[in-house]
Design a protein around this nucleic acid. Structure first.
Lengths: 348, 348
DNA sequence: TTGAAAGCGCTAACAA
DNA sequence: TTGTTAGCGCTTTCAA
């Protein structure tokens, strides 16, 4: 069924059908009703490709999830404790605004070609990129596409320093620094001074911020920084697990561990258990992200909550506003975190 | 940059550019190279809408997640322990086959209009629907769209009984009956005879199969069926929690509970704990789905594993094959389940 | 208020 | 082997 068919059935021209479909004001109510009746009767839906080709938007946004896990890893699909709620919230919000969401996962540098393609092939009006590792070349390229996009978790200063075209870009972050500071300060307030950290990837903004806050907060409380207490977890369960095992077997005995994300904290708990150490009696642990399961573990994990839903909503609202030219200025938001105190930390 | 621009730069016609882009055989290597060079230099990507309008496929499949949770529920996004791996696996598989995925969540009857729209507007070449509740009218309507689609978890006999057009349809299930039977038999083999069940929704195929297997297996072992032992959990955490509390407060004391999914099993564990009952010492529990967290709980949850990744792969391969006319026949597959024995069940 | 017609960027049948 | 040309189904300008 094409607009021409509807036009014939309603006794009008294709133009009028189009005007009705697009709610143009210069259609008398009578005509509108007449055409609408046929449209509904035949459940006519205009062909998206045709309307896009004729100049309309796609009403679709791209969601690109840059994953740190291997494509090969067979349990990769179980590693997205962090991303799933994002995807969920973004899809929902977009849907509720009448947008479709084209989703693509990115594992390799070559996969990035796919995000460029999606824009260049005009499959989407705008995009949201989550999980980006520092990659100014990539960001510059996307910025050059002149299509609206949002980066979630990216260093704003890197954009400004490199004088990128900011007209189509926005950045949404959480206040990772403040969140991490609060977490470490919490441990210190419980009497801990031997605090190890399982660090995230240094090539992500959040990874760097959380680590820097750890360093600074120790210093602010006159606690010496120990190199051996810094574990490189890279945000990966397995890495964290191995590092914690190594730490313990080296005879190190921190009384507390601050983990840059919950997945690693969970892996750490497992490693500690296997080494005969009890959480929180022997070692206190704080995670980051407050993934859904944090509250279902034994002991329930103390963690820094990120307002993922609000962030996703903001991302979708911003990108669609940009798509519709309702908003043009470069814009960055930083959402506050919240320390969720549960059972995994003990006062010394 | 349009194909015409490329044509000019390469000194050929648009047709030749098109032939190169589509890997037509009748282009001499020389010409191919010449054109390719310009294409790569300018990073030309053909406009998707134009090629679709000219008769090509969209290279996009729709993924429709029919959710049982409320759109309103603030913690809805945390309720998708089951769907997240599906989405993940489907997106990945599709991406690896060169397909994009358009994802949409469906909460209400009206939302179903969106899946029809996606097809009718020709946004997608085919679709996968997961989480469908029995809704023969809906299935009939989609079948009438003459576009390939896959139903995951749907009663095959309902399709055949209703004589639906099967030319564009396939169904992928797990052997829920066998899985549930194995789970209940496991409890019985541990000496349990007082076995309650938290049932899923009766309007889903898996919900019905799991329940029927419970009934049949009890009977096969001469264990009387007790109406009061059937809790209506509807696959929802909250419902299950409330029902378990009610059961216990009514003074009922089953020694084991078989739950139709893990989310409800987790809720049950919480409810039992609050009632002062210990798992597995006082009550044994088996879940279904084997969600990622099942292995991280305390005690680690015994559960029936579904091969989600394989199912997703199969779904994507089938739907793309149908889109490309490589496969046309109606086709249904049933994947085997596997009982993962962990710590939540005790021998009496 | 409405219709005719041009054009969006591509593919494919046809002709050369 | 290559180019010309006619659509694909819509929106929108222009003219009536």
């Amino acid at each position: 069924m094409r607009s021409e068919d509807i036009a014939k059935l309603a006794g009008v021209s294709r133009s009028t059908v189009s005007r009705v479909m697009n709610n143009y004001p210069n259609v008398p109510e009578e005509t509108h009703r007449k055409v609408m009746k046929v449209i509904e009767q035949y459940r006519y839906e205009p062909n998206t490709s045709a309307r896009v080709l004729a100049g309309k938007g796609t009403n679709t946004i791209g969601l690109f999830v840059v994953s740190i896990a291997d494509r090969q890893s067979s349990n990769r699909i179980y590693q997205n404790n962090y991303f799933a709620p994002f995807v969920d919230a973004i899809v929902d919000t977009a849907n509720s605004l009448g947008y479709y969401v084209l989703i693509h996962t990115v594992y390799t540098q070559e996969d990035f070609a796919k995000v460029r393609q999606a824009f260049l092939q005009r499959r989407i009006d705008g995009g949201i990129i989550v999980g980006t590792q520092t990659n100014i070349a990539m960001v510059r390229e996307i910025a050059g596409l002149q299509a609206p996009f949002i980066l979630i978790d990216y260093d704003v200063s890197e954009i400004t320093d490199n004088q990128l075209d900011q007209n189509y870009m926005s950045i949404i972050n959480t206040d990772d620094y403040a969140g991490a500071k609060e977490a470490v300060a919490h441990l210190i307030s419980l009497g801990h001074r031997e605090i190890a950290m399982i660090a995230g990837r240094a090539n992500t903004y959040s990874g760097r911020q959380r680590f820097q806050a750890y360093v600074d907060t120790l210093q602010a409380h006159d606690i010496p920084f120990k190199e051996s207490y810094v574990l490189t977890g890279e945000f990966l369960k397995q890495k964290a697990y191995d590092e914690v095992k190594r730490l313990i077997r080296n005879g190190e005995r921190p009384t507390a561990i601050f983990s840059a994300n919950d997945d690693m904290a969970i892996a750490a708990m497992e490693a500690l258990r296997e080494e005969g150490l009890h959480v929180p009696d022997d070692v206190s642990i704080i995670g980051f992200d407050d993934v859904p399961v944090a509250d279902q573990l034994a002991p329930r994990l103390t963690s820094v909550r990120l307002p993922l839903y609000e962030m996703s909503k903001e991302a979708v609202h911003t990108v669609t506003a940009m798509c519709e030219r309702r908003q043009v200025a470069f814009h960055t938001v930083q959402f506050p975190t919240k320390l969720m105190i549960r059972e995994s930390c003990k006062e010394l």
